[in-house]
Design a protein around this nucleic acid. Sequence first.
DNA 1: GCCAACGTTGGC
DNA 2: GCCAACGTTGGC
Length: 136
Amino acid sequence: MANYWLIKSEADCYSIDDLKKDKSTSWAGVRNYQARNFIRSMAKGDLVLYYHSGGTAPHVAGIAKVVKAPYAEKDPLWSAADVGFVEKFKTPLTLAQIKHDPKLSGMMVTQQGSRLSVQPVSKAHFEIIRKLGTIS
DNA sequence: GCCAACGTTGGC
DNA sequence: GCCAACGTTGGC
């Protein structure tokens, strides 16, 4: 069964445009045990919300997918997975909008102090966000 | 740039 | 094993 995730990146560090240009990238360097465990739960084909943190209005910028199952980094304590570009949203969905939408309540990213850079997302939430981001 | 929230480190 | 100090994240 496919799972859904949300991964964070600072837009001026590695944005969805960078991912689009590169086609895919190795999602490595996560140094948080909870986030690492989520990475290890990823499977090829899982869909991923690509979230830009930082900036004036943090937002979900588009969709990526797991293109290579998780593997150990050089240091076997940590894991990485490869994610590929799927689509960039016509209308990025801001964190404010997510918080405001009752259908999206309970998402981990809206909870205070959630600093996890890799988070699970429910199928329902994923599909709502994809729909909202894709309409022009 | 500020600061609250959170995770990690390290002395005891 | 506790907890204070410290570093980092990330919204605002």
